[in-house]
Amino acid sequence: MLSITCAGFGGQGVLTAGLLLAHVSMVSGKEITWVPSYGSEMRGGTASCRLRIGDEAILNPFFSSMDTLIAMNQESLDSFQDAIAPGGVLISNSSMVKDAEFRDDIRVIEVAATEIAGDLKNPRGANIVMLGAAVAATGLVDAEEFADGIDAYFAKKGRSNPLNRECFMRGVQAAAEA
């Protein structure tokens, strides 16, 4: 079972990134819990969601120690880096996290997600770049299969956008190069 936290500013698509992770995992037969953060964080501050993904029924949807953190901004890194389990994975958005001190007992993958998404003319796809890096780094689901899942998810909502797949694959590539 993997415990994953996805965090950033409200508006950076962290809840959507978590939803995509949950949805595609479900389609590939996994059990999932997805819990959004709550309270004053909803109003402009840090937004986050916590996921547990596994092959067996998920008992407790809450956790204080996570395997993977997707940090879209500096505040998220500051809030959650200490909670990553030793040997865990940190995907850090280097477009917004500058000069950070990273722990040396975790695997850090820096991805310039906001810039990559901007370059691809899909500025709202930074969350999907980060997702690509997370999926590649955790090996949760095959990357191509996951990209198909993203396409299917947005197609069903009538919001197909081939740039999302490009964003995702750039994230996968970034993780491979890290």
């Binding site: 059990e31 999932i32 949807p61 809450f62």
Partner: peptide, 10 residues
């Protein structure tokens, strides 16, 4: 309760 109400599961 708020947690089961707000969380997502299959």
């Amino acid at each position: 309760d708020a947690s089961i109400a707000q969380m997502m599961e299959p």
